[in-house]
Each structure stands twice: as structure tokens, then as C-alpha cells.
Nucleic acid binder design. Sequence first.
DNA 1: ATAATATATGAACGCTTGCTCATATATTCA
DNA 2: TGAATATATGAGCAAGCGTTCATATATTAT
Lengths: 96, 96
Amino acid sequence: MLLTELKATQLAELFSALSDASRVRIISLLIQGEMSVSALAEGLKMSESAVSHQLRGLRQMHIVRARKDGRQVFYSLEDEHVQKLYSMGLDHVEHG
Amino acid sequence: MLLTELKATQLAELFSALSDASRVRIISLLIQGEMSVSALAEGLKMSESAVSHQLRGLRQMHIVRARKDGRQVFYSLEDEHVQKLYSMGLDHVEHG
DNA sequence: ATAATATATGAACGCTTGCTCATATATTCA
DNA sequence: TGAATATATGAGCAAGCGTTCATATATTAT
């Protein structure tokens, strides 16, 4: 069926969330559970600023959610959709 | 589990295939069956050159395959993986 | 209040991307 | 052979992206 330009754009935006290695790695960590910005930065060996910028984008796409606790902010996946896309993609990359 | 940088990059490349509205629309047409470059260009109201450039990228990612017949080249999806990602993404975009 | 810590934000910069335009290659037809 | 058609390709350009660096904001501790 023919896609409207709007839906094509929305689909492209959704997949854009996973179209960068840094974001993929952020999501791979968040799949295991919520994590603070600095924990993500340390785990990924990225600057906290770079991580924060990426998280902002993911937040705006409603892919992650932020929970503030004291001066830390813990991020987690907003729903299971992206995780499903992630596993399906990983499966494709690993086997076949 | 922690992703290697290599796999994160491969995953990002895979999702990049669907991270642009033009490519999403190309794939939405190819899901219905193989199509020539000019038919794609007409259906999508894109220049044949733009379509051809995108098809080259998709070919290099092994997402589409080319079959030459006379002076036309018919493109089709190389396997069902991308189609599965596409439907899952579309599902997410359409019903929440 | 002041300092220290955690995160967010804006500007700037280099890199990539997707297009157009011109041109090249391949195939068919007259 | 020469013209017409279908696709591919390369250069160039504008827009977008991901980072760094400097700075701002919010929270906690002294």
C-alpha cells in the first residue's frame, strides 16, 4: 500500500533513533534497566554532554523517559517498541 | 548485554536504510513487488537520478537486488528482514 | 552563602547526506 | 550507423547531524 508522505516521515524519524552507533549503544544499555547520564557516559566512554544531547533527542522522540532523583537523572526506555526493533535488527546483523 | 562498537555500527547502518522518507517510500513500493527505476521515480514523484542514487545505497547495504531486463532495471527486496522491520515500525507509528 | 556535583543547553565546527545537473554507459530501434 | 531510451555516476551544494567547549541551571553538602 502507498504510504502518505506524513507516515513515511514518521517512520523515517522512528528508524533515525537507531541510525547512529552512539544511540544504539545507549539503547543497548537502557534495555537492561534505567541508568543515569553519568553512568551511561562512563559505560560508553562518551562525554556526559554528548550523551545528554543524544538523550534529549531520544526524549523528544518519546523513546526514553527521564526520572529525576536528587541531582541525578535516570533514563529508561519509554516502551518496548524500540527494544523489539533493536532485537530484530541485532538478529539480522548477527545471523544472516 | 554490551554491544561491540562493530555491531553497534552495523546495527546503525541497518536502521539508516529506513531513516529517510524517500527510502522508506521506495521500500514501501518494493514490498508489493519488483519495480523499475522509472516506475519508482514516477510513483514517488522523484527524479530518476535521485531514485537511482538511493537504490545504489540500498544495493550496497544488500537491501535491494537489481535484475536487468533490456534497458530497464527492476529492483526488489533482497530478503524479508527489512520488510519485517518496516511493518513493525509502521505498526508502531500507526497504533501507538 | 559558597562550593561541589549532575545534567542541560547553545554555539560552533567538521562531517555526512540527499539532492540537482551534467555526463557516461548500455540497450533497442530505425 | 545513429538516434532514442533507461539507468548510473560524479561533482557540487545546501541542509542536517554529532561532537566539543563553554556556560547555565538545579541540587546537595559544608
